[in-house]
């Protein structure tokens, strides 16, 4: 028997799990109105979607057994996971900080951090980006289109 493609089986299992999770959450997360017809009830479409997702998951598992693999496993080395994970954490930190400190100042700092993380070592380019970009965005949103950005305690 042909060796099943492991990643396809994992993907299928995850989808089946997610579909089942949606079905499990429906009673607690959706308030059905008594007397409402099944087809027009708020839980109808989510339930249908959950069943279809489970079927797709089963289809992927079947593919894992029946079809030869064409694409390789996902590229998830330690370095990749670390760099992307760090970027996510920094982005969340930026989102927590900029309403408090102010958009312009925080954005300037984070543009510099990200440019360094990407590998730029040109101090001039980083410095110009840290100043020009947040000011440009501020001018565009606040001055040109009068859309306020958070000023925080700094600006």
């Amino acid at each position: 028997m042909r060796q099943p493609y492991l990643w396809r089986l994992i993907e299928g299992a995850v989808l089946i799990g997610l579909g089942a999770l949606i079905l499990v959450l429906i009673p607690s997360q959706i308030q059905n109105i008594p007397g409402m017809e099944t087809e027009t009830s708020p839980s109808f479409l989510p339930a249908v979607l959950a069943v279809l997702i489970i079927l797709m998951g089963a289809g992927l598992i079947a593919q894992g057994f029946l079809k030869p693999r064409r694409d390789g496993p996902p590229d998830l080395t330690r370095v990749v996971v670390f760099r992307v994970g760090l970027s996510v954490v920094l982005l969340i930190l930026y989102t927590v900080v900029f309403p408090r400190l102010g958009f312009v100042v925080t954005s300037g700092v984070f543009v510099g951090i990200y440019a360094y993380l990407f590998g730029s070592r040109s101090i001039l380019k980083i410095a110009i980006s840290m100043v020009a970009v947040p000011i440009g965005i501020w001018l565009f949103f606040e001055i040109l289109f009068r859309i306020p950005l958070p000023h925080g305690i700094l600006y």
Partner: peptide, 29 residues
């Protein structure tokens, strides 16, 4: 190294200014 940080900041500003709601930036992330 320069362009993508700029894009991400513009994206954060764009997401925030839709409803002036920081929750929208978390949705973006």
């Amino acid at each position: 190294a320069v362009l993508f940080p700029i894009v991400i900041i513009i994206c954060a500003a764009g997401s925030y200014t839709v409803n002036s709601n920081i929750f929208d930036v978390y949705v973006m992330i």
